[in-house]
Nucleic acid binder design. Structure first.
Lengths: 385, 385
DNA sequence: AACGGTCCTGAAAGGGGTATCATCACACCA
DNA sequence: TGGTGTGATGATACCCCTTTCAGGACCGTT
């Protein structure tokens, strides 16, 4: 069986974790700080705050900036947590459609929605959405591919909308020479085992904003006060701490981040070459403004006449794990209950029916990749026939 | 330096974690299930759901039972998360005072408050609290010592109030032969490194209620559907998953839980003997209904004429870590902002000024304990003089 | 061209929660 | 004994959000 994904764990990773266990410091120790330092250095952000998941990172950013306004703009073609954090704070997600090439938020659709809101032409549940009610835009660098940040920033600034960067899938990617995660007021990364680097479960916040860093650090630790005020809880807080084993893993993984990204780039290149001979599929597009691509997953787009679900079945029965993500957030069962339905986001809904993630991990072998593409070719022929 | 606390990590614990790293399953794997099985067996609960913290466990229980009513009863002499989970769900904590002997919620004060509520004599922020607005009682087994569950259950049933058991500090304790965590509709445990057993960061929910178990499992994993519906999110959810390294640690720790509790009991016994010769302190009281005591921390009560803060300073400067917990929740800065103030809970406020937690961990040596008690004796003499 | 249906949109009503105020009782003090 | 201050209590007003309704524009049909 060729799995969809998997972590890249070597001897040095294991040794780091052992060191933690022998140190008897299993939480809030030196590895957390070291991990944060490495992330900050790598991204170029001034501050990094490690937490226990990407979801926690997004939540704490939102809490820290505490933006006024009940609505949050967010794409629907993303992991559900991007939108859920709005619900955590009793805010309402408003969905933006995507661009068919990169699967990222379409700047023109973003601009269109904001224009309609400004003109009083945009409604949610029968209610007019005012521009001052839009608290922020949760901007996602999907599958590792950065947004068109010049465009997005320009639009957001024009309408006075704060941008949070959900760069959970894009650690190491660069837009015009600048690292993903550094474009909004703060950025979030995630380190689930299928990510570029893993900490088991884990995430991190990066920001140049001192207040966000300070508040996030406090709120991840039950709202405790600064300066060793250990027993004082000065604000609302959560337990979003990362444990030391995870942080230690993060340290050893970050020490070889460039090598990992390089290996993943070669995997992507090989897929690209192999897919040139396959009819009915479109390989991922990397736009020119992406000066460095850090692949999270390798998602191809099937032609409209290829039944994706049948391809998935064929691949799975032939021992190859694939996945059809993302299902649009606005069509998830409990978002439907909030009034969303098909037709709201044409590109998102079309694309989400045709995407297919191929097995992709740092140390996948060339042979396995060939098997994947051969099986895919067979699947498409079978499905079309 | 003699630390306040520390985890008890042995060779087998380390080996389990190594096994995880070599398995390439760093999340949602077999150790999580094994850990849950061991917890369920040990407590006698039908279901166990492992999560990433005790706070997450409490939150998911509250979410799962989704109780009607805006107010939650909770002691103030507890860790802040017991009360914070109410705020997570836009509910308002109403504080109950404690018993001076065990530091646990005073059943008579609980009864008194509920009676006043029923008679329309209880107000919060000027507003009358109605009995049907009380969603539940967050019952805490403080420092490992079980509540007087016969009394608490009787009162809660009389007023129709749901009980959630915050047994985060009481893994292994028994009330009249029944394990802590099994008295409310569900119980929560926590495994921070200072706890009886540790997973780094981690927690677990135990319950006999199938719905609570099912909902908790879904909501810890982003609200995903049951039965392998991996891409469907059928309800609101969080990332409260425990990672496999932590779960593996939990497995090896649970395999020796009886030995650990036994060792901690001997530590407590030794402290008890040593403290018999110390004036001005009261050793912890264990009530007769506690058929098995699983010590979390060892908290002594200083006489009113002993200045606790000076004792703390003395001990710390003499290389012995101690702690004055808990600071009452209702007097934490951001609870004060909600209108709470001194005078609300006389016993809680008195006790919290006089408690002192001594260094306490599974493998503390008898020699170190003697040093602790000798230093304490000197501290008290110095302070009184 | 007239009719009817749908969708859009503004406005108003309803409800829940919160804050404020007036009143009353009680206690303390002059 | 009366005045003042404090705290408890009931009532009220207000604010915000949400739902509903009615009018009107638009479009398709007859």
């Amino acid at each position: 069986m060729i799995p969809l994904s998997g972590p890249f764990i070597e001897e040095d990773d294991i040794n780091r974790v052992i060191a933690v266990l022998k140190s008897r410091r299993l939480s809030m120790g030196p590895f957390t700080e070291e991990f944060e330092k490495l992330i900050a250095e790598h991204t170029g952000a001034r501050y990094a705050v490690a937490v226990n998941s990407g979801t926690s990172a997004l939540h704490l950013i939102l809490k820290s900036i505490d933006p006024k306004g009940r609505y949050m703009l967010v794409p629907s073609f993303t992991f559900i947590a991007s939108a859920n954090v709005a619900l955590f704070e009793d805010k309402i997600p408003l969905f933006v459609d995507i661009d068919e090439r990169t699967f990222n938020t379409s700047p023109s659709n973003l601009e269109d929605i904001l224009t309609r809101i400004e003109k009083g032409k945009y409604r949610y549940n029968g209610q007019k959405v005012r521009i001052e009610d839009v608290c922020c835009f949760m901007a996602v660098d999907i599958f590792g591919h950065p947004l068109d940040w010049d465009e997005v920033t320009k639009i957001a600034e024009r309408f006075g909308v704060t941008v949070i960067e959900d760069s959970c899938e894009a650690l190491g990617s660069e837009y015009k020479g600048k690292k993903a995660g550094t474009f909004g007021v703060a950025g979030a990364f995630a380190f689930y085992p299928n990510k570029q680097i893993t900490t088991g479960e884990g995430g991190v916040i990066v920001t140049d904003n001192e207040d966000i860093a300070k508040l996030s650090k406090s709120m991840r630790n039950q709202g405790r006060g600064e300066g060793g005020q250990w027993l004082l809880h000065v604000r609302m807080g959560y337990n979003y701490r990362i444990d030391e084993m995870s942080a230690a893993l993060g340290v050893s993984q970050m020490e070889k981040i460039d090598r990992i990204i390089g290996m993943r780039n070669r995997v992507a290149e090989r897929y690209g070459k192999l897919l040139e001979n396959v009819e009915g599929v479109r390989a991922p597009i990397v736009e020119d403004y992406v000066t460095k691509m850090s692949w999270f997953v390798y998602v191809i787009l099937l032609d409209k006449d290829v039944n994706r679900d049948n391809v998935v079945d064929y691949m799975e029965t032939h021992g190859i794990q694939v996945r059809n993500y993302f299902q649009p957030v606005h069509l998830q069962p409990f978002y439907r209950k909030m009034g969303h339905a098909e037709g709201e986001l044409p590109v998102t809904e079309d694309v989400s029916k045709r995407t297919l993630a191929l097995p992709f991990y740092t140390d996948i072998s060339e042979e396995d990749q060939k098997v994947v593409v051969e099986t895919l070719k067979n699947a498409i022929e079978k499905v079309k026939a």
